[in-house]
């Protein structure tokens, strides 16, 4: 029983990765919007873009990790 619940929990946790994807999309979209307004400043900000994407994605990875733990380690 507990195993099944863990699997359900893993599925729910996996939703977090999708939500994190929204965040990553937001970062990229805002960057693109800003970059199109001021293309000359865009190149200098790619590092910031990647840092932002990395932070947003890290949280999605956390939920993925929770899903994995529920699947395999609980």
């Amino acid at each position: 029983m507990e195993g099944q619940l863990a699997h359900i929990g893993a599925g729910i946790a996996a939703l977090g990765t999708g939500i994190a994807a929204i965040g990553v999309g937001n970062v990229a979209a805002s960057f693109l919007g800003g970059a199109l307004r001021n293309p000359s400043a865009a190149a200098a900000q790619t590092a910031t873009l990647f840092i932002g994407i990395a932070f947003a994605e890290a949280l999605g990875i956390f939920s993925f990790l929770v899903a994995l733990l529920l699947m395999f380690a609980v």
Binding site: E2, G3, L69, F72
Partner: peptide, 23 residues
Amino acid sequence: GDGLADAIGVAEHSGGSTGMPQL
């Protein structure tokens, strides 16, 4: 738990499942 799992044919942590080698 094992009884239930046996009943529906789920082999928890077995049947080739390796768990998480990272842990």
